[in-house]
């Protein structure tokens, strides 16, 4: 710990991002079966791009 409160806040922020990264890794391990390419949003389109495919326009 340091005497400077600003530095301590920065330290906590860094720690949070490390923890978040670890949690993400855990999630990735949970779905280890998924081929890596399908977890890469730069390669795969996950959400259907047309609104018509995600809503119901017929009144029923």
């Amino acid at each position: 710990m340091t005497d400077e409160p600003g530095e301590y806040d920065d330290f906590l922020t860094d720690l949070q991002s490390v923890v978040a990264q670890r949690v993400e890794e855990l999630r990735a391990r949970q779905s280890a079966q998924t081929p890596p390419a399908f977890n890469d949003e730069e390669k795969v389109v996950r959400e259907w791009p047309e609104l018509a495919g995600r809503i119901m326009e017929e009144f029923r």
């Binding site: 079966q33 998924t34 081929p35 795969v44």
Partner: peptide, 8 residues
């Protein structure tokens, strides 16, 4: 297709 690929 996506759901099938996600479970390998």
């Amino acid at each position: 297709g996506l759901a099938a690929a996600m479970v390998n």
